[in-house]
Design a protein around this nucleic acid. Structure first.
Length: 327
DNA sequence: AAGGCGGGGTG
DNA sequence: CACCCAGCCTT
C-alpha cells in the first residue's frame, strides 16, 4: 500500500456513507445497484433498490419477469433501457453462465447494459479483481489530482485520466474499498463546484492550483424544443392511456393520446406543463375530453397506479386529474 | 465522434 | 435558470 492509498482508505473508513446496498452485499445486489446508479444520484435510487430487491430477489426471477412489472418497478427512475437490459442480461446469465453473473471484468463488459465502469465496479467490488471502476467522480478527482486539462467528455481525455487511475490501483485485497473510496471522495469532498479541499485526505498529493477549473468538459448541445397537446379521453371514472410504441423516448411506457376522439361532448383544459429531458423539452398543453364509450385502454386512477408505468413527464397531469376532479 | 436516452437535486 | 449525477448504446 502506498501512502496515497493509505490516506484515502483511512479517510474512507471513517467518512463513508452507510449505503444499504453495501450491507450483506452479493454480486446480484451490487449489479442491480450499479445499474440503478448510472447517471443517477445515490439517494434517488435507494428506494427503488430496496423495492426491486424485494420483488426481484435473484437472477431467475429477473430473467422471467413480465415487462409491465419491470417497467412499473423502474417508473420515474429514467433511462428505461437499463431495465430492459437488466432482464436481457439475466437471460444471458441463465443461458450461458449457469444462472450467475460472470466473474471477470472482460466477461461482464460483454453483457447488455454493462460498460467499462459497471463491469469494473462489479468485478472489483464483488469479486476483488484488481481493475478500475472509473465514473464521473473518479474522472473529476484524478483530473484535479494530476491537473489534467483535457476534455473528459472526449475519449482522448478520458483515456489520459484513466491511465493515471490504472497506475494507482492497489492489489485485490484493497481494490473494492479503493474504488469506492475514490467515488465517495468525489461525492462528498472533491465535488464539482466549490470542492471542500480543506477536508480532503489527499490534498497534499493534488497538483492542481485551481480545482474549480477542472475537469474540463465540453458543453452539451442546446436542447430541442417540442410542443405537444395531450388529449386525456375520459369515460366515467376512467382515463384512456396508450402504450408508447415508437421505438425511442419512453418506449414501452404509457402516455396519453395526442389526438382528439371522433366524438366527445365536453372538453376541459388542464394547466400546461413543460418537462425537461437532457436532450429535449416538451412544452405540453393538455385537456380532458369526455367521451360516451370506452375501449380496453380505459382505466381508473387506481388501476393505473397499480399496474401501468407512467413516466414523470406525464404525472403532473395525472395529479391534476386526481386533485381537481377526484376520479 | 456525436447524439439519444430521464429525472431530479442543488446553487 | 444551469449544471451534472457510481454511463451505455447506436449511428
Amino acid at each position: 500500500m502506498t501512502n496515497f492509498q493509505e490516506d484515502l482508505l483511512t479517510w474512507y473508513q471513517k467518512n463513508k456513507r452507510p449505503l444499504l446496498f453495501r450491507q450483506d452485499a452479493n454480486a446480484y445486489k451490487i449489479w442491480i445497484s450499479e445499474i440503478m446508479a448510472q447517471q443517477t444520484r445515490i439517494e434517488a435510487m435507494l428506494p427503488y433498490f430496496e423495492r426491486f430487491i424485494e420483488k426481484v430477489p435473484d437472477i431467475p426471477t429477473l430473467a422471467t419477469i413480465a415487462d409491465e412489472q419491470l417497467n412499473k418497478l423502474w417508473q420515474g427512475l429514467g433511462y428505461y433501457s437499463r431495465a430492459r437490459n437488466l432482464k436481457k442480461c439475466a437471460q444471458v446469465c441463465m443461458e450461458k453462465y449457469d444462472g450467475q453473473l460472470p466473474k471477470t471484468k472482460a466477461e461482464l463488459e460483454q453483457l447488455p447494459g454493462i460498460g467499462p465502469y459497471t463491469a469494473g465496479a462489479i468485478a472489483s467490488i464483488a469479486y476483488h479483481e484488481p481493475v478500475s471502476a472509473i465514473d464521473g467522480n473518479v474522472l473529476r478527482v484524478f483530473s484535479r489530482l494530476y491537473d489534467i486539462h483535457a476534455d473528459i467528455k472526449k475519449s482522448a481525455g478520458k483515456k489520459q485520466v484513466s491511465a493515471k487511475v490504472d497506475e494507482s490501483l492497489p492489489d485485490g485485497q484493497h481494490i473494492s474499498d479503493y474504488n469506492q473510496a475514490l467515488m465517495e471522495l468525489g461525492a462528498l469532498v472533491c465535488i464539482p463546484k466549490k470542492p471542500r479541499c480543506e477536508q480532503c485526505p489527499i490534498r497534499s498529493y493534488c497538483q492542481t492550483e485551481d480545482p474549480s477549473q477542472l475537469p474540463v468538459m465540453s458543453k452539451p448541445k442546446p436542447r430541442r424544443v417540442e410542443h405537444k397537446h395531450l388529449y386525456i379521453w375520459v369515460y366515467q371514472n376512467k382515463l384512456r392511456i396508450v402504450k408508447r410504441k415508437e421505438k425511442g423516448l419512453l418506449y414501452g411506457l404509457y402516455g396519453f393520446d395526442e389526438e382528439k376522439p371522433d366524438r366527445y361532448y365536453k372538453e376541459i383544459p388542464l394547466k400546461p406543463y413543460t418537462h425537461i429531458f437532457s436532450h429535449v423539452e416538451w412544452h405540453m398543453e393538455a385537456s380532458l375530453v369526455f367521451v360516451d364509450r370506452e375501449d380496453e385502454n380505459f382505466h381508473t386512477l387506481a388501476e393505473i397506479d397499480a399496474m401501468y408505468a407512467i413516466p414523470s413527464a406525464f404525472t403532473p397531469f395525472l395529479k391534476q386529474v386526481q386533485s381537481d376532479f377526484m376520479f
